[in-house]
């Protein structure tokens, strides 16, 4: 849709090259268009490639930073001094963690001493879809913190499990898990109050809370029971479960 206003009296070149009366042959036109398009392609692909090369190192660095930031939410960097990302072991696909693919567990140490394990888990019974969790379990078996890494819960209803969406900024719902020991879970009290447990859930929106609570409880038990083995494994290896 071209409006007459689009053609301003600034230009003295003919308006559209197509209107020129020459009628060259099809082959000649194809050759010309192919050449021109080729030239443009080379120039602009080069431009893109150049930018790519320029930004690649920065991109790699920021991907790394991104991961550390997520970990930092459950385990502040001041608590450890090792290269966390390098000190990782692979966990097999574990139903207790809600994962059907192998995942990584990072080991935080301070002065060589085990501090905490950072790992992923997943709650599969959220209101809508899976809820991804990142947990940090301290060496004494207490949960350092848990965060939701990704979810699709109903906005405004179930999404308070993510502290960024939680209206109560000073005391987010998910903070109530911090510092709880795994004995609580073993004792069967790692549940929302409605189910007879210890944890709150907001009225009218218990499904998301229940899913996160149950998943984090199960994950905590599983990891806490294997924490010694996990710290002992050499970096880069996979945890081998003995089949009972």
């Amino acid at each position: 849709m071209s409006d007459p206003q689009d053609r301003l009296p600034l230009d003295d070149t003919p308006p559209a090259p197509g209107e020129v009366q020459r009628q060259p042959g099809a082959m000649k036109v194809s050759a010309r268009t192919a050449t021109v398009l080729l030239l443009f392609t080379i120039v602009f692909t080069a431009l893109m490639a150049f930018t790519h090369d320029m930004t690649k190192p920065i991109l790699d660095a920021s991907a790394q930073a991104q991961k550390l930031k997520l970990i930092g939410e459950v385990l502040p960097p001041t608590l450890y001094d090792n290269d966390l990302l390098a000190d990782a072991v692979t966990l097999p696909a574990t139903p207790a963690l809600g994962l059907d693919e192998p995942s990584l567990a990072y080991r935080a140490r301070k002065g060589g001493e085990p501090v905490a394990l950072v790992f992923e888990a997943c709650a599969n019974n959220g209101y809508s879809g899976r809820i991804g969790l990142v947990l940090a379990v301290l060496a004494d078996g207490r949960l350092r913190a848990v965060r939701v890494s990704q979810h699709k819960e109903t906005p405004g209803l179930g999404d308070y499990i993510d502290p960024k969406k939680d209206k109560n900024k000073s005391n987010p719902w998910i903070e109530q898990f911090s510092g709880q020991g795994y004995d609580l879970a073993l004792g069967g009290h790692w549940k929302v109050k409605k189910d007879g447990g210890r944890f709150d859930a907001r009225a009218g929106a218990t499904i998301s809370a229940r899913a996160v609570t149950n998943a984090s409880g199960k994950a905590l038990i599983w990891i806490a029971e294997r924490r010694a083995a996990l710290f002992a494994l050499p970096a880069g290896t996979t945890l081998q479960e003995k089949t009972p």
Binding site: P24, A26, S30, A31, A34, L38, T41, T45
Partner: peptide, 26 residues
């Protein structure tokens, strides 16, 4: 980078030729 360039260039030549041809024929 070279591969990217080559792929793009090949596409450009083919497309350019086809479009030019079509513009005259149709």
């Amino acid at each position: 980078m070279i591969t990217a360039l080559l792929v793009m260039a090949l596409g450009a030549v083919l497309l350019g030729a086809a479009l030019g041809y079509a513009a005259v024929k149709f």
